[in-house]
Structure formats: structure tokens, C-alpha cells
């Protein structure tokens, strides 16, 4: 009798314990955020969080490093644009001070940084704010933020679209491709107007270039000169950020559409900046 009572009590208590307490995975598990979310890469995004910045420093030659160390302490950070209000000026100085890296427009250092920077080669002097001239932290922060914002899906993430990360990089580095900067429509029209009087009408190639520039101003088509080592896919990646855009290239260049093997070095291709 006693044993029966004990067995009954044991099973009742354990059943009720299991039902009520429900030991199992904790509630937090259901809502645990994926910590790797920011590191996910797709073809169109760059993984900047994992980039070890020390690697770029390794390629700077020693004399440049000693130069930096010598001039490091009394180099103060100067904003390129003069602040409009006193408040903004204080903010700019304060924010740039926190970046803790002097903005260096020295040609030697910028050349060294150009070597170290992975993909693009850029001229050391540019009329607008050059990518060289900003601290690598600022650039990396901007890329990280653009990465995160592109993941939201508000702005169309198609590669080469305005606002996409690769479009920004491509646009900024297009200065060397044609000799002309890729800018928005009003400035390109201005450029056409300025270059028109300088065209020598007898020179066929110059005339052709002027005609292309005029067409570009009207239809939004721009020029790309094929350089050595270029393939259609590579050009598509350079211009649009994705190899899938080759059909866009072929659409804009009917000469190529018939026979894509006629790609030659120095050939002028049309492309439409989206």
C-alpha cells in the first residue's frame, strides 16, 4: 500500500513538473539574432568587416613610415571644406579628431596607399574630394554602412544602381577610364559644350569622339575604351558591378551583338550609366 502510494505520488509529481516547467530550449533562442548577419556576402557586396587593416600598412615602404612618424605629431587634421557655421566646424574637427588618422595628401604616401588599395588605380590629384585623401577608417565606415543599407531592400540593390556600394566605387574610380569624369547629366552636357570649339573637324577620330560625346549628352550613353586584358564580362563588372550585365552591354553595342568576338583593344563601347 505504501509502495503504491509512493509510486503514484512520484509519477504525479514528475508529470506535473514536466508539464508545468516545460524544460526545453529557452525563449531567447527563438529570437536570437544571427551574429553573422553582417558578415554575409553576396556577389554584389563587399565583406569589409573582416578586412584586417594591418595588411595595407605592410606594403608601405619604410621611408614613408618614418616620414609619417616624423611628421605625425604636429600634423593637424584640416577639413577640406570650410565649415559654414561655428557649430559645424566644431563638429567636423571633433569628429575628425576621433578618427585618429591624419588625412594625408602627400603624393608619396598617397601613391603608397594606391599600391596597397586592392582594386583600383587612381590618379593622385583629382579636382573633387579624392578617395585617397580620406582616412581609410572613414572609407571603411562608409562602405560598411552602405553595405548594411543595401541589405534592407529599399533602394533597388541591382548592381550598378544608384546607391549600391559597387556603383559608388565604380563611379568614383571612373576618372581614369576615359579621361573624362563620369558625372551626372548636367555636368556632362557642360563638358560637351566646352570641348566642342576645340574639335578639329579634319581629324576623323576627334570628330567621332565629339559626336559620341554629343550622343552621350542626349541619350545618356557614355564611352568606354577597351583596354588590354578586358573581356565582356570584365567590362560589365567594371561598369555595372555584375557579369550579368553583359546583355546590357550587347544591347547598347549592336556591333558586338552580331559577333562578340570582335572586341578589340582601343575599341569604343557605349554604355548607359543606370
Amino acid at each position: 500500500m505504501m509502495r503504491g502510494f509512493l509510486i503514484f505520488a512520484f509519477f504525479t509529481i514528475s508529470t506535473l513538473l514536466v508539464i508545468v516547467l516545460q524544460p526545453g530550449p529557452r525563449d531567447d533562442f527563438a529570437y536570437q539574432q544571427n551574429p553573422q548577419a553582417l558578415l554575409e556576402t553576396s556577389r554584389n557586396q563587399m565583406q569589409v568587416l573582416d578586412e584586417p587593416r594591418e595588411d595595407t600598412l605592410l606594403t608601405i615602404p619604410d621611408d614613408v613610415i618614418s616620414e609619417l612618424k616624423a611628421g605625425g605629431t604636429d600634423q593637424s587634421v584640416q577639413p577640406i571644406v570650410a565649415p559654414e557655421a561655428a557649430d559645424t566646424g566644431v563638429i567636423l574637427n571633433g569628429l575628425q579628431a576621433t578618427l585618429a588618422t591624419p588625412i594625408n595628401t602627400d603624393a608619396a604616401v598617397s601613391d603608397a596607399l594606391a599600391e596597397a588599395t586592392t582594386v583600383f588605380q587612381q590618379p593622385s590629384v583629382q579636382p573633387q574630394a579624392s578617395i585617397h585623401a580620406i582616412a581609410p577608417e572613414l572609407r571603411d565606415m562608409s562602405w560598411q554602412t552602405l553595405n548594411a543599407l543595401n541589405g534592407i531592400g529599399h533602394v533597388s540593390k541591382a548592381p550598378g544602381q544608384q546607391g549600391s556600394l559597387l556603383n559608388s566605387i565604380v563611379r568614383r574610380s571612373m576618372g581614369h577610364v576615359d579621361g573624362t569624369l563620369v558625372v551626372s547629366a548636367p555636368s556632362s552636357q557642360m563638358r560637351v559644350a566646352l570641348s566642342a570649339p576645340a574639335v578639329a573637324i579634319n581629324n576623323a577620330t576627334v570628330w567621332r569622339q565629339a559626336a559620341r560625346a554629343k550622343i552621350a549628352a542626349n541619350t545618356g550613353l557614355q564611352n568606354y575604351t577597351v583596354s588590354s586584358g578586358d573581356t565582356l564580362a570584365l567590362i560589365a563588372i567594371k561598369l555595372y558591378g555584375s557579369a550579368l550585365a553583359t546583355d546590357q552591354l550587347l544591347q547598347d553595342n549592336p556591333v558586338l551583338r552580331q559577333n562578340p568576338n570582335t572586341l578589340r583593344i582601343g575599341q569604343q563601347l557605349n554604355y548607359r550609366m543606370p
Partner: peptide, 20 residues
């Protein structure tokens, strides 16, 4: 994360951030 330092006027990527 949109650090305040990326919104300064001499950041060439500020326009892209605003577009994004």
C-alpha cells in the same frame, strides 16, 4: 550603424549614403 563621422561634408561617400 551610420556613424556620425560618415556624414561630414568632406566624405566623398556621403552622397551615396544619402542615396542609400
Amino acid at each position: 550603424s551610420v556613424p556620425a563621422a560618415t556624414l561630414v561634408t568632406n566624405n566623398p561617400y556621403r552622397e551615396d549614403l544619402l542615396l542609400a
